[in-house]
């Protein structure tokens, strides 16, 4: 192709780009109507508060962990305007009295019901899955549940920002056959609370 022809094509596309920008600059009506197939990607960051452990006999003990941090990534698919189905990948860390770090990485499948009153929304969700736990040389995979809620302000149809509050429950159950030092009475149900800031992007 000759050089003059290429230059013309370039100019035409450049002009189209400006033309498109002008169209986008026109204010559009923001909405919060979702349909099957719409998706939401959320990112949360905040404080992880260890609450307590519970034995299978019901007694409780302090979690003996410091405040930690968590980061969570959510991907949800709208089934209709209010119901979503998706997953959450969360990572957190907390320190013991001697500075040993425990890492928790739950992977959850979750269902969400979203209460809407534009420009706000309140998602209520519940997830179930597994949690990877790493502490010193030990690495285990345990069942996990998480209940959560949020309060978002939507600055556009695509972007929303807000707070979230989540309760994480991890069941660390032993049969006693795992290693010589482990017995079934070491089973613990661990309880954590997450408080964080979130951003959600709809696409």
């Amino acid at each position: 192709m000759k050089k003059p022809t290429l230059a013309v094509l370039f100019l035409i596309n450049f002009a189209r780009l400006f033309a498109q920008s002008e169209i986008e600059a026109v204010p559009i009506f923001a909405f919060d109507q979702r349909n099957l197939g719409d998706k939401a990607l959320g990112l949360s960051l905040g404080t992880d508060i260890p609450l307590f452990y519970q034995t299978l006999s019901g007694s409780t003990a302090p979690a003996n962990l410091s405040l930690g941090g968590f980061l969570a990534l959510d991907l949800d698919f709208y089934l209709n305007n209010n119901w979503l189905l998706g997953g959450r990948l969360r990572g957190s860390f907390n320190a013991t009295p001697n500075g040993n770090i425990v890492f928790l990485v739950p992977i959850l499948f979750k269902g969400t019901y979203e209460i809407k009153f534009w420009p706000f929304s309140v998602p209520l969700w519940m997830g179930a899955g597994i949690s990877f736990i790493s502490f010193k040389q030990a690495f285990e995979v345990n069942p996990a549940l998480q209940l959560g809620s949020g309060f978002y302000y939507h600055v556009s149809s695509q972007w929303g920002f807000g707070l979230n509050l989540n309760y994480l429950w991890i069941a660390q159950l032993y049969s006693g056959n795992e290693s010589p030092g482990i017995s079934s009475d070491q089973s613990r149900l661990a309880n954590f609370l997450d408080i964080g800031l979130s951003a959600v992007f709809h696409f």
Binding site: N64, F135, Q186, R188
Partner: peptide, 15 residues
């Protein structure tokens, strides 16, 4: 899984 000398949360509780 790689298990320790005792359960993870049990170990942390007793630390």
């Amino acid at each position: 899984c790689t298990y320790g000398d005792a359960g993870i949360f049990y170990t942390i509780e007793k630390e």
